[in-house]
């Protein structure tokens, strides 16, 4: 009985393997395009407005930011002034102005993973503890797996780069890229 179960699990694992490999890796041509986008994102992360915004938030966290919890964040409508303030600040304006047609989402986090600016409200108020924030905080670039955007039905991939201040990571910039658009 147990051995039959094990065999079934093994079969399922073998069936899922190709999909898993496809999700993890990208076609080299597509990866080249993604790399080109990452270069631009790295450049964007050095924009003085972004660096200043992250640095200021790290230095002094506003009380309403400090009081924000994941539950409160989840219940906040996107048109609430608090959320809108994160889409209308100078850093958000820069991200919006410099985003390419391939960008599906973008958000800037401070050292603690709390939001500094974004284009669309994120699912989480803090991304601390998640690789997309922790990796850039260690100075590295992070690239996520291919995923399907439920809103558009398009394949997308997230990449994250550190926001550096004097060569030291002070935050992260996470950008969603439309693979459908990149490959078309």
């Amino acid at each position: 009985m147990i051995s039959r179960l094990c065999r079934r699990l093994l079969s399922l694992s073998l069936l899922a393997l190709p999909f898993s490999l496809f999700a993890q890796g990208l076609d080299p041509a597509v990866q080249t395009k993604v790399n080109a986008q990452i270069t631009q994102i790295v450049a964007l992360a050095t924009d003085p407005a972004l660096v200043r915004a992250v640095r200021d938030q790290n230095a002094s966290l506003p009380p309403d930011y400090a009081a924000m919890t994941q539950e409160k964040w989840k219940a906040l409508p996107i048109l609430e002034p608090f959320v809108r303030s994160l889409t209308r600040n100078p850093a958000a304006a820069v991200i919006k102005a410099k985003k390419t047609e391939f960008v599906t989402e973008a958000f800037l986090s401070d050292a603690a993973g709390l939001k500094v600016a974004f284009l669309a409200k994120t699912s989480n108020w803090s991304h601390k503890g998640k690789p997309k924030h922790d990796k850039p905080m260690s100075g590295e670039t992070w690239q996520g797996p291919v995923e399907v955007d439920e809103s558009t039905g398009q394949q997308q991939i997230q990449v994250a780069v550190p926001v550096l201040d004097g060569g030291k990571p002070i935050g992260s910039l996470i950008i969603g890229l439309s693979l459908t658009k990149l490959t078309s």
């Binding site: 996107i78 048109l79 959320v83 809108r84 919006k96 284009l119 669309a120 809103s151």
Partner: peptide, 13 residues
């Protein structure tokens, strides 16, 4: 449903 940008969403709303 297809819009992510809050500014665009607000306008479309």
């Amino acid at each position: 449903l297809r819009l992510r940008d809050i500014d665009e969403l607000e306008k479309a709303l």
